[in-house]
């Protein structure tokens, strides 16, 4: 039987509680992984490994957390995503909500895209594929 969004959220929540040593109530859909939950760069890999195991899926490098766009001058200029870069990152991250980010696409605000909801959306899409 397919997992409901609630089931997926519960498992993602458990994963983040274990990976980041946070309390379950801190892991809300809107919480950002770095800002609110204190994730550091190595934690992102840990989270990917744990999600793969938890949901029995394969997460190719860069699919959940794209990291290859920032060094491309066509996509990032003066610390902000260009229109082409914004199109590209939206394509690479259909699981993220860009409504706030695109008003000021500063690369320093990119971590705000990685919320708990982003993870749940990604897993939901992956399991439905």
């Amino acid at each position: 039987m397919a997992m409901s969004r609630r089931d997926i959220f519960d498992s993602v929540q458990e994963t983040l509680v274990d990976a980041l040593a946070v309390e379950p109530e801190e892991v809300t859909e809107e919480a950002t992984l770095t800002g609110d939950l204190g994730a550091e760069s190595i934690d992102f890999l840990d989270i990917v490994f744990r999600l793969e195991k938890c949901f029995n899926i394969k997460i190719p490098r860069g699919e959940l957390f794209p990291d290859d766009l920032l060094n491309n001058p066509d996509y990032v200029s003066n610390g902000k995503f260009t229109p082409a870069g914004l199109t590209q990152i939206k394509k690479a991250m259909p699981h993220a909500d860009f409504s706030t980010f695109e008003q000021d696409p500063d690369v320093n605000r990119m971590p705000d895209l990685f919320t708990v909801k982003t993870l749940v959306n990604y897993i939901e899409g992956k399991l439905a594929a």
Binding site: I42, L45, D46, F49, E52, K53, R61
Partner: peptide, 10 residues
């Protein structure tokens, strides 16, 4: 070893 990938291992 639980997981080993190009960039890391657990």
């Amino acid at each position: 070893i639980d997981t080993i990938a190009d960039e890391a291992a657990q």
